[in-house]
Amino acid sequence: MEIVNANSASLSNLEVFKHLQKIKDSKRKHRGQLATITYETIRYLENTPCADETNESVKECLKALAPFNLNKTEMLMMINSPPITALEIQLMVEESEERLTEEQVQEILEIIVRYFPYVVMKEADEEDNESQE
């Protein structure tokens, strides 16, 4: 076996999730460890925000984020784990304090809420559960 290119493209969690689900749903019998790794990876991914994303919401969100001059990996992180606080944006974006104004950070958070509303809803749910306990 020969590696032509170890990194020919990046995939978002959503793309991987969809592809693995197709494999899982195909009736064919899988030999080796394919079934194990698909099952485990799907189990991880279905607990991440990507389970509620759609191709359209991701595309639209990327378009909306374009004016902020984020690089490719930063965009990818925004899609894979949409930030809901300014602190999370600070973690994802290198030197965010110099590159983004406070208003821009707020704008990004609003964009995320617009395209991935369930991220915020889920967070609220969890807090409810905790207070009940």
Partner: peptide
């Protein structure tokens, strides 16, 4: 195509390839 896909998945799925990473599934 199907025979080769099955063969590649059996060979690589859930294996680490040096300097590439953990292989998940054929794309």
């Amino acid at each position: 195509n199907d025979a080769i896909a099955g063969e590649l998945n059996e060979k690589l799925a859930n294996k680490v390839v040096l300097n590439v990473g953990l292989c998940i599934a054929l794309y």
